[in-house]
Amino acid sequence: MAKQADSKTRSVRGSRTGRPIMVLLDLLGRRWSLRILWELRGEPLTSRALRTACDDASPTVLQARLTELREAGFVELEEGGGYGLTALGRELCETFMPLHRFAERWRSSSPSPRLRGEGRGEGGPPRRR
């Protein structure tokens, strides 16, 4: 039988145990979370620049994700007013780099134009069904 989460631990989607990997995957699986981390990997960005980099994501959703990422210790508000990655946030982004390299190789070898991103531009919004 699985251990129940500590009463102080907030329950997360997909896990009643509060296991760290499930908490992390829940956070990173939320809309725009990974994109925000990815866009901040190079340098801090203001809210406006980050919103532009995130294809004009809703300001409400963007602020909600920034708040969650700040609470998680991955993002911090810089003295100049922009958002940047913390040391922990940079470490997390580094763990994505092998996956990023793999994705680039996979995309170039994929026989599917849809999976290569053709026909809608890179980073474009998904087509509505």
Rank of each mutant, 00 (worst) to 15 (best):
W32C: 14
R10I: 08
T52Q: 13
P113G: 01
L99R: 12
W106E: 14
L77R: 15
G82N: 07
V61K: 13
L25A: 10
S7K: 14
T60A: 15
S33W: 00
L34N: 07
A53E: 03
K8C: 11
E118T: 12
P44K: 00
L24Q: 04
M1D: 10
G29Q: 08
S33N: 13
G14S: 03
S58V: 11
S15R: 06
M1Q: 13
R41I: 00
G42T: 07
E76K: 07
R19G: 06
S110E: 15
H100L: 11
S47I: 08
R48P: 03
G84C: 02
R114M: 06
Q63Y: 11
E91M: 00
R51S: 07
S108Y: 07
R105D: 09
L50K: 06
G14Q: 04
L99F: 15
L85S: 02
T67H: 12
P111V: 06
T86A: 01
A49L: 14
S15G: 06
E122C: 08
R120Y: 04
Y83A: 13
L28R: 00
T17W: 00
G117H: 01
A103Q: 09
W106H: 15
G18E: 04
Y83H: 15
P113E: 01
G42L: 07
I21P: 01
P111L: 07
L62F: 06
K3I: 02
A87N: 09
A53M: 08
G73F: 02
G80W: 09
L77E: 12
T17G: 13
S112M: 05
G73K: 04
R35Y: 03
G117Y: 00
M22H: 13
T86D: 02
L69E: 00
L45A: 02
E118Y: 08
G82D: 04
G84T: 02
E122A: 13
T67E: 09
L45Y: 00
C54R: 02
A64C: 10
S112E: 04
T9M: 11
R65Y: 00
R107P: 05
A53Q: 08
M97L: 14
T9N: 06
G82E: 03
E68P: 03
P20F: 00
D55R: 15
E71I: 06
P59D: 02
E39S: 15
M97K: 07
S33E: 05
L24P: 02
L88T: 11
Q63F: 13
R107A: 12
P113K: 04
G42W: 05
L45P: 00
L40G: 00
S7T: 12
E94P: 09
G82Q: 06
K3L: 11
L88K: 15
V61A: 15
S15I: 04
L24W: 01
T17D: 14
S7H: 11
W32Q: 13
R16K: 11
D26I: 03
G42Y: 05
E43V: 09
V61S: 14
S11Q: 10
D26L: 03
E76M: 07
K3D: 09
Q4S: 11
